[in-house]
């Protein structure tokens, strides 16, 4: 009788279904409605922008994979997420050549040089965005009107700016973001408009409602830790409420703060990136509270109207420290001992 082929393995012998690919694919699926809404808002230019950043990110990753002699990592979808997220943080009319450079820098400096997925301390999309803010200050603060009538038939003039040139502003298209209007012109923020989303802004920072729904989808599919956005939004709301209570004439209502700018996109899709956030359950809360607080402080007192990007990058930077002070207490060990 032939014996069965016996396999020798160390336990456990069963595994829960689920893989890194599944998590990342779920995030991509959750991003698609946000992307679609952005295209509906801003038209062909937004679409071209997403295609460009995604392609740039994917090609950069493949280039570094080849240079370092490892196989393709496209299967894990994480670079697609970076590409789409990056596009969503940029103005819809951002010149495509700049978008390509930004994508390259984000993945190269933000991810590949650290060793790829799992080793990047910062969110690569935000590294790209921070680079663009420094390198292309004018282009990145030129916003366009949402729902322009010709958006599905023609590209914004700035989109196709020739490489290594800066677009000339065209007044007929430009518009200030609600946060910019508040900061520089003292205009009031309209919470409901911001919540549903027909306002000027970055390609993806417009409908808070839609982003929240997509976030719920990710939570339901186990692809996101809900505590991170919950902590950020709670902290941002409370910080803003404190300022509003102190001076209602100057500061916007906390609701408007919650739904404006990149806060929702950042909280749901960027700060929640597992790699850059603490791994400890208590640390996750602390990390979220820190980001929400910093975002509002930068918004209210910084030189720029929006502060979410820097708040998240600072949160990423603080993650290892937060982790150190929030190590869980093992069973049978008293607090303060061990650790």
């Amino acid at each position: 009788m032939t014996p069965p082929r016996i396999e020798i393995k160390s336990s456990p012998h069963i595994k829960r279904a689920g893989s890194v690919e599944q998590i990342m694919r779920t995030v991509v699926v959750a991003l698609l409605p946000v992307c679609a809404f952005s295209v509906y808002h801003f038209g062909l230019s937004a679409l071209a922008l997403m295609a460009t950043t995604t392609l740039a990110c994917v090609l950069t990753e493949q280039l570094f994979n080849r240079l370092s002699g490892r196989g393709s990592t496209l299967g894990d979808y994480s670079t697609v997420i970076t590409g789409l997220l990056l596009a969503l943080t940029l103005p819809p009319g951002f010149p495509l050549w700049m978008a390509a450079v930004t994508g390259f820098v984000g993945v190269a400096l933000g991810k590949a040089l650290f060793g790829g997925l799992g080793f990047n301390p910062f969110n690569p999309a935000l590294i790209g965005r921070a680079f663009a803010a420094a390198a292309f200050p004018q282009a990145i603060s030129t916003w366009t009107e949402a729902g322009h009538p010709a958006r599905f038939t023609e590209l914004l003039p700035s989109t196709l700016t020739a490489p290594f040139t800066t677009p000339a502003p065209v007044d007929a298209y430009t518009a200030a973001t609600p946060l910019g209007q508040w900061k520089f012109q003292g205009a009031e923020l309209q919470a409901w408009e911001l919540f549903t989303g027909m306002t000027p802004g970055s390609a993806g920072e417009t409908s808070a409602l839609l982003i929240l729904l997509c976030g719920l989808f990710m939570v339901a599919r186990g692809a996101m830790n809900w505590r991170i956005p919950a902590a950020i939004l709670a902290s941002a709301f409370l910080t803003a409420a404190a300022f509003y209570a102190a001076d209602p004439g100057h500061f916007p209502t906390p609701w408007a703060v919650l739904f404006s700018g990149g806060l929702m996109l950042g909280a749901v899709f960027m700060a929640s990136d597992m790699v850059g956030s603490p791994v400890t359950p208590a640390g996750v809360w602390l990390y979220g509270l820190l980001i929400g607080f910093l975002a509002i402080i930068i918004r209210f007192f910084g030189g720029q109207p929006e502060g979410v990007m820097y708040a998240i990058l600072l949160g990423n930077a603080a993650s290892p420290l937060i982790e150190q002070i929030t190590q869980p207490r093992p069973y049978g060990k008293r607090k303060g001992r061990g650790a």
Binding site: I23, L117, G118, V275
Partner: peptide, 8 residues
């Protein structure tokens, strides 16, 4: 196995 993505 793949790199840890620190999902917690």
């Amino acid at each position: 196995s793949q790199p840890c993505i620190r999902c917690g």
